[in-house]
Amino acid sequence: MPADKHPYLFLLVFFVMAVGFAVGPLILAWLWAKLVSPAKPGEIKNSTYECGLESKGDAWVAFKSEYYLYGIIFLIFDVETIFLLPFCVAFTGLSVGAILAMLVFVLLLVEGLAWAWVKGVLTWK
């Protein structure tokens, strides 16, 4: 089978060699372990935590869902900076209408923050 008739033959050869290079040592190690080194699993050896201490309690700890409002407020103000940056860059060349529109936008956000503050969302308890 000439190689110029099958240009993808080299790819196949490379693929087989690459897989063999990775899998071959793993198979050899597995065979050697079967031959020489018996597996000795145990309760302590198979335990999850590995720093000398026994783990206590449950990893599934409940987290208070009421903090979602805090997260949303953070997200809003994080995105707001993206709008504020072009506003700052183009500040001197803006018309009165644009300035007013931007001020309304910022005031709405501040009003939302004040509402959240009064409602007690910002207090972690």
Partner: peptide
């Protein structure tokens, strides 16, 4: 006890 536990968790040899 922690030392023995760590030793137990090491794989052979």
């Amino acid at each position: 006890p922690q030392v023995v536990r760590l030793y137990n968790q090491m794989p052979e040899p």
